[in-house]
Design a protein around this nucleic acid. Structure first.
Length: 473
RNA sequence: GGUCCCAUCGUCUAGCGGUUAGGACGCUGGAUUCUCAUUCCAGUAACCGGGGUUCGAUUCCCCGUGGGACUACCA
């Protein structure tokens, strides 16, 4: 694929974007970037009843966070860029009206005054009869006056008998025109439906490839018929397989799907999310698992997108995020970790935090775990010594007191600490793991923590001795 | 119910007529080790079923079965 594509991501601002939506946008971004093409962000806000305040901003922010934003249409700052705007559908109603009139005069569209009640009854009848609902064209034969509120329906033509297209991922798909319903193109309120707006916009904006979820396959024949009615050239359709939740149904809010920005707030790295999403439903045929964004731009191809749906595996995302965290230099990690530290960390210098990071970096699966993993570096823990096995309380106190004395006179270096502690173990005839475990709980408050000597070095002599002392009381 | 889409380990996937069906996540075991984690080894586990086509089907075709989507004056 070398011709520059023009693709678009066209969410409706009715809520947050989850990872499934983000993946569609990512595919848009990748193919546009690869071909030197254009990635347009358009807002489909024709359903004014479902608009959600701030949703548009959240969508832009999500893409911006991942560094996979558009280069035309709605830009991150909310401005619009490009020659085919406006890119917000509610600002284009005159355009839709104009094109609807064209079809109206061609009799491809016809007015309908039917009430919701009548339509409901029709549907029930169809349900009862076990057939697909199709509008009965009552208003075509019984017209009222155009002054009365009405919608404009698309008259499904009797020819062609079949509507077929070659989908770039699904292959040949075919529908019988007979099964299609005279769908509404223009609503009573003058706004277009999705079907009408998407066709008009995609054509006017010179979209070459329509990437969208495969839940749109059933409405694609309607769109094609609309293109035909206008006499317009068809874009290439690329229907993306669904991203499924753990329950194997379409990823949705009410099935554990989180807003994309929540992953940011939990400390997922954009490069991990991008890598994970790109390889969910796409692969280049190799066994490569880790891809930088540049590698993805080079390797990506629409024809290797999977036909079958993919279950979103958060374990895999977590693994990948951990991988990317480990790949960061400590300095870069420090930079990225802003806002994820325990509150008390604010009182400590970068130098100190860098030391802490070096110890926990390989343990982090997300930056959000920083608080849990590092709080004892910034405030004295409550050491519950009852969890120590193999010592009775008196012994514990004796050991801690002796160690405090010993370490007060120890050179504060890795080797110094090691020889002091190991020497103590030998001298007392103890087991290494046993004694180290005791000290670990005393100074970190937990049984699982970074290496003992490394931890003590970061903590410093004063703090270490204080905690030993505290624990022995 | 109708229409359409899909079908390889639990999950993400490789495979494009002949392979010991490969990799990754997860899980299990081991090595390293002061715990945890990292790292490195090893193991576990799959072609939905039935018919064709073919010398030969995971692969091509058909039929089932299963899952999913759509079926609004929502997108």
């Amino acid at each position: 694929m070398s011709n520059p594509v023009r693709v678009r991501f066209a969410p409706s601002p009715t809520g947050f974007l989850h990872l499934g939506g983000i993946r569609s946008a990512l595919f848009d971004y990748l193919i546009a970037k690869q071909t030197g093409g254009t990635f347009i962000l358009r807002l489909e806000d024709t359903d004014r009843a479902r608009l959600v305040e701030g949703a548009a901003e959240a969508i832009s922010q999500s893409l911006d966070w991942l560094g996979t934003g558009p280069n035309e249409g709605i830009m991150p700052d909310g401005s619009q860029k490009g020659d085919y705007g406006p890119y917000i559908q509610s600002e284009r109603i005159d355009i839709y009206r104009e094109y609807a009139d064209k079809l109206l005069s061609k009799k491809a569209l016809y007015p309908c005054w039917c009430t919701p009640e009548r339509l409901d009854n029709l549907r029930k009848d169809a349900q009862k009869a076990g057939v697909a609902f199709k509008y009965d064209r009552h208003c075509l034969d019984n017209p009222k006056t155009m002054d009365e509120p009405h919608v404009l329906r698309f008259k499904i033509p009797s020819e062609p008998k079949k509507v077929a297209w070659h989908d770039l991922v699904k292959g040949d798909v075919e529908f019988k025109t007979d099964d299609l319903d005279d769908f509404v193109a223009l609503k009573t309120d003058g706004f277009p439906t999705y079907h009408f707006a998407v066709v008009v916009d995609d054509h006017l904006m010179k979209i070459s490839h329509v990437l969208r979820g495969d839940e749109w396959i059933p409405s694609t024949p309607k769109h094609i018929l609309l293109y035909l009615a206008f006499g317009w050239e068809l874009p290439i359709f690329v229907h993306l397989p669904q991203v499924l939740g753990p329950d194997k149904t379409k990823l949705s809010k009410r099935h554990g799907a989180k807003p994309a920005l929540e992953y940011r707030d939990e400390g997922y790295l954009p490069e991990a999310v991008v890598n994970f999403l790109a390889t969910l439903g796409w692969n280049d045929g190799s066994t490569q698992e880790i891809y930088s964004k540049d590698e993805l731009v080079k390797a990506f191809s629409l024809d290797r997108i999977q036909k079958s749906p993919a279950v979103f595996d958060s374990e895999r995302l977590a693994w990948m995020n951990g991988h990317y965290i480990r790949e960061l230099t400590p300095e870069a990690l420090l930079e990225r970790s802003k806002g994820f530290w325990p509150g008390e960390a604010a009182d400590y210098p970068d130098e100190y935090r860098l030391g802490v990071l070096e110890l926990v970096q390989e343990r982090l699966k997300s930056l959000g775990e920083l608080v849990e993993l590092t709080d004892f570096f910034f405030s004295d823990p409550k050491a519950d010594l009852s969890q120590i096995k193999g010592f009775d309380p008196t012994e514990i106190r004796q050991h801690l007191t002796a160690l405090a004395k010993l370490l007060a006179a120890t050179e504060w270096s890795h080797d110094g600490l090691e020889s002091a502690l190991r020497g103590y173990v030998d001298e007392q005839g103890l087991k290494t793991g046993q004694l180290f475990g005791l000290v670990r709980v005393a100074i970190t408050g937990r049984t699982a923590a970074p290496g003992l000597f490394e931890t003590m070095l970061v903590l410093g002599q004063e703090t270490t001795l204080r905690r030993l002392d505290l624990a022995s009381k």
